[in-house]
Amino acid sequence: MTTEAIRVFNRPPRHIPRRVVLIVVLLFFAVVFAMPLLWMISASLKPENEVLQSPPTFIPSEFQWGNYSQAGHGLLPFFLNSCKLAALNVGFLLLFASLAGYGFARLNFAFKNLAFALLLSTAMIPGIVYLVPQYMLFRQMGWIDTHYPLWVPNVLTPVFGTFLLRQAFRGIPIELEEAAKLDGASIFGTFWRIMLPQVKPALAAVGALTFMGSWNDLFGPLIFLNSTRLQTMPIALALFKGEYFTQTNLMMAAATLTILPPLLLFLLAQKYFVQGITMSGLKG
């Protein structure tokens, strides 16, 4: 809810009609935003020939819970691969991005601004441009059909994470760091014990965004993996799409299962997520 909305909401009773209008408007938008999600859940519980029935129905004539067991059959390896890659991406990216972000925000070294500009400029090159050279390089390294291409390059070039955490570190009063130095803390000790805990919301925001990026990555696994046993959840979902027709109800059941981890993560970490975006100065 926006600040204006909260202000209107907290006004005295004479503003009740305005509050009701506000609630109705917000409910309308909530329903509009939730509609694709609700349609997905509804379709996941229908027989296939009811999914595109006209006029459309929302409640299935018969709840087909079996769609979930049918769609979920065999999904576990994909799920575990996605979990593993998300954990690797989040864990290592937070480590490297926070170190780099702290360095760019607080340490003084030669060509710091140039290095930061160079770092940001790497994000301007579309990935498709270097796809073939990257594929050839990974092939020479024996990385094709392994998980390495899906996390090592990501965590070693955490441009967005570095930028966001740099902004967060810059927002912390310098006195805090000076006090640590006076108490004899080393640079790393200051970073690890004093500064890092101050940017927890930003870490949560970067972590959540990295998790989503890794969890939803379709293109990377598609290009760099060949073996089905190494594939991830987005590929599993794509496997439901047939060339000429698709079992839509099963695909929607699998999609519902796929969104559960990010949904859960967002519900648990939404406070930090919003705070992190706000404190790093990215809020519009």
Partner: peptide
């Protein structure tokens, strides 16, 4: 997971291409 898995297994099957 982040600490333990990278070295444990990245699923290499040695196919290389």
């Amino acid at each position: 997971l982040a600490a333990g898995l990278p070295l444990a297994a990245c699923g290499s099957n040695g196919s290389g291409g």
